[in-house]
Lab assay of single mutants.
Amino acid sequence: MSGIALSRLAQERKAWRKDHPFGFVAVPTKNPDGTMNLMNWECAIPGKKGTPWEGGLFKLRMLFKDDYPSSPPKCKFEPPLFHPNVYPSGTVCLSILEEDKDWRPAITIKQILLGIQELLNEPNIQDPAQAEAYTIYCQNRVEYEKRVRAQAKKFAPS
């Protein structure tokens, strides 16, 4: 494992614990031996107030490669969400998460999670990743928002 990646992720964890947006979660997972795995984080993004996503808490896994922060983490909703920019596998399609697009090593975990929260309610229809959600979003916004509200209710924190 890269010392650069681990040191950056340790800084990220410290900064997150000191200050993070209300309702968001970002925690490194534990290895079988109980030690912390900084390369694999369990996160959760709350649906934004005043949107059909409100009330939901959407679980996301963030996986970092050894060359982080040169390369972005892979962000994957578990379980996958109904959304035009979420692949059926759950992987998020967002330009700041793509090395050859808008990724920059200075982007923080907090910025990534806030960017994904923004994307939930403002899909990028130029870059669809899920045919069904994309089609319904474009053709029947009322039905799309109904499905999103049902999903938010399903993923409401207990």
Rank of each mutant, 00 (worst) to 15 (best):
S2Q: 15
S2I: 08
S2T: 11
G3W: 12
A5K: 06
A5F: 09
A5N: 12
L6N: 13
S7K: 07
R8W: 04
A10D: 00
A10M: 15
A10Y: 00
Q11K: 11
Q11N: 09
Q11Y: 13
E12Y: 02
E12H: 05
R13K: 05
R13H: 05
W16E: 03
W16T: 04
K18W: 02
D19K: 06
D19E: 14
H20D: 05
H20G: 01
P21H: 05
P21R: 00
P21K: 06
P21N: 07
F22G: 08
G23C: 00
G23M: 02
G23L: 06
F24H: 05
F24K: 01
F24T: 05
V25Q: 12
V27C: 14
T29R: 14
K30V: 10
N31T: 08
N31Q: 10
P32W: 12
P32L: 14
D33F: 01
D33W: 07
D33Q: 03
D33I: 03
T35S: 14
T35R: 02
M36I: 09
M36V: 06
N37E: 14
N37T: 12
N37A: 14
M39I: 07
M39R: 08
M39A: 07
M39Q: 02
N40D: 14
N40W: 05
W41C: 00
W41L: 03
W41R: 00
W41E: 08
E42K: 12
C43T: 15
A44M: 14
A44R: 01
A44E: 13
A44H: 07
I45C: 14
I45A: 02
I45S: 06
P46K: 07
P46G: 07
G47Q: 06
K48G: 02
K48E: 08
K49W: 08
K49P: 05
K49V: 15
G50Q: 10
T51M: 02
T51E: 02
T51R: 00
P52F: 10
W53N: 08
W53H: 02
W53P: 04
W53F: 06
G55P: 10
G56H: 07
L57Y: 07
L57C: 12
F58R: 04
F58M: 07
K59N: 12
R61C: 11
R61F: 11
M62N: 02
M62A: 09
M62R: 00
L63T: 08
L63S: 14
F64M: 15
F64R: 01
K65R: 15
K65I: 14
K65G: 11
K65Q: 14
K65P: 11
D67S: 13
Y68E: 02
P69G: 02
P69E: 01
P69I: 01
S70I: 14
S70Q: 07
S70V: 09
S71G: 15
S71C: 10
S71D: 15
P73S: 06
K74T: 15
K74M: 15
C75A: 10
C75F: 15
C75K: 00
C75R: 04
F77Q: 00
F77D: 00
E78H: 12
P79V: 14
P79L: 12
P80Y: 14
L81H: 00
L81K: 03
F82N: 01
P84K: 00
P84N: 13
P84R: 03
P84Y: 02
V86L: 04
V86T: 00
Y87G: 04
Y87Q: 05
Y87L: 03
Y87V: 07
Y87R: 01
P88L: 14
P88I: 15
P88K: 11
P88S: 14
G90T: 04
G90M: 10
G90Y: 12
G90S: 03
G90I: 02
T91D: 06
C93Q: 06
C93N: 03
L94Q: 03
L94A: 04
L94R: 00
L94W: 05
S95L: 04
S95R: 01
I96R: 09
L97P: 11
E98N: 15
E98L: 10
E98V: 08
E99V: 11
E99F: 09
D100C: 04
D100Y: 14
D100E: 08
D100A: 13
K101Y: 15
W103V: 00
W103L: 02
R104E: 06
R104V: 05
P105D: 01
A106H: 01
A106I: 08
I109R: 04
K110R: 12
I112F: 15
I112C: 11
I112A: 09
L113V: 12
G115R: 00
I116M: 14
E118R: 11
E118T: 09
L120M: 11
E122N: 13
P123S: 03
P123I: 05
N124A: 06
N124I: 04
I125S: 09
I125V: 11
I125N: 08
I125T: 09
I125W: 10
Q126E: 13
Q126Y: 10
P128R: 11
A129Q: 05
A129K: 02
A129P: 04
A129R: 03
A129W: 00
Q130K: 04
Q130A: 12
A131P: 10
E132H: 09
Y134H: 05
Y134V: 08
T135I: 11
T135Q: 12
Y137N: 00
Y137W: 00
C138A: 15
Q139W: 09
Q139E: 13
Q139Y: 14
N140P: 11
N140S: 10
R141T: 12
V142Q: 12
V142I: 13
Y144Q: 03
Y144P: 04
Y144D: 09
E145T: 13
V148N: 01
R149S: 10
A150P: 09
A150C: 10
Q151Y: 08
Q151N: 07
A152N: 09
A152L: 00
A152Y: 00
A152S: 08
K153Q: 09
K154W: 06
K154H: 09
K154C: 00
F155N: 15
F155I: 09
A156T: 11
A156R: 13
S158T: 13
S158R: 11
